[in-house]
Amino acid sequence: MNTYLELLFLFVMAVIGGAVNVTIGGGWFIIFPSLIFRGIQPVPGTATTTIVLWSGFLASSKSVQKTGEISKTHFNYMLAACTLGGILGAVLLIAFSPKVFETIAPFLLLCSWILFTFYNRIFNLFNSDNQLIRKFTYTPVKLIPLFILGIYGGYFGAGMGMLLFLLLRFYGIKNNETLERLSLVLIAVNNGIAILIFIESGLIFWPFALVMMAGSIAGGFLGNAWKERMNTVLIKRNAIVYGATVTLYFLDII
């Protein structure tokens, strides 16, 4: 492929991925395969995907003013747990052989696709009147799942936003605006610290990353601007089929 056509392809895919990520989620299924298709190895591919989606997600998100149902002190503890997890996850990605990641990644992708496909049903379970936790109460034990989720975010990260949203809902946080604010900060810091480690380790493939970051930012703004006019049900159905195809390909089934 001609270099300019290659960069144009990656830019367009990043625009789509950025728009999808801020509307229905699942941008990972678009960005990561695009990089692999253009010859990037899986470990640099996941590092580059992280910075591409992170830039679009962060640039197009609303500013965070307060943490709502959680005190600032308790939120700082949660932020620290998620951040430390991100550091460990990024270090694990770098420290282990690429073959380890290449073996695990398809199954992580499968789990992410299952979560993406059935997310609304799962969320409704956490949102039902029968949920066990009625109101958020801080306990140090709640930091453990956040730390583990932080490791996942630093190591792979596909679907982390949905997992974090579900976890916080399970903890008893009911206000969607509060959930969005908390998730925004936790993901931004978790992915941000992992990205710093990736940059220091030379894992980011900058010629593609810079072009795709620009596309992801543009896609994020476009997605937010057109969100209310989009047929998100139809888009998600198509995204589920596309995600299934990508997942089956990485599982060597097709």
Rank of each mutant, 00 (worst) to 15 (best):
T3L: 03
L7S: 12
L8S: 14
L8Y: 07
M13R: 07
A14I: 00
A14Q: 01
V15Q: 04
V15T: 07
G17Y: 06
G17P: 09
N21S: 05
N21Q: 13
N21R: 08
I24T: 05
W28P: 10
F29P: 00
F32D: 03
F32Y: 11
P33A: 01
I36D: 08
Q41L: 15
G45I: 06
T48W: 03
I51L: 04
V52P: 11
L53P: 10
W54P: 13
F57T: 13
S60K: 12
S61G: 09
V64E: 06
K66D: 09
E69P: 15
S71T: 15
T73G: 09
F75E: 05
N76C: 14
L79F: 12
L79W: 14
A80N: 11
A81Q: 08
T83H: 03
V91P: 00
L92Q: 06
L93W: 06
I94D: 06
K99R: 14
V100K: 07
V100T: 11
A105K: 00
F107T: 13
C111Y: 07
C111N: 10
I114H: 03
Y119D: 05
Y119C: 06
N120V: 07
I122S: 04
F123G: 08
L125T: 13
N130P: 13
K135L: 01
K142D: 11
L146A: 01
G154Y: 06
Y155W: 05
L164D: 00
F165K: 12
L166K: 01
L166R: 04
R169V: 02
R169F: 08
G172N: 03
G172A: 02
N175L: 04
T178R: 15
E180F: 11
R181L: 09
L182V: 14
I187H: 12
V189P: 15
G192A: 03
A194R: 04
F198R: 06
E200R: 14
S201E: 07
G202L: 13
G202M: 13
I204E: 04
F205I: 14
F208D: 13
L210F: 09
V211K: 04
W226F: 15
W226T: 14
R229V: 14
N231C: 11
V233Y: 09
I235P: 12
I235T: 10
K236T: 02
K236C: 02
N238S: 13
I240E: 00
I240R: 01
V241C: 10
Y242W: 15
G243R: 00
T245Y: 09
F250R: 02
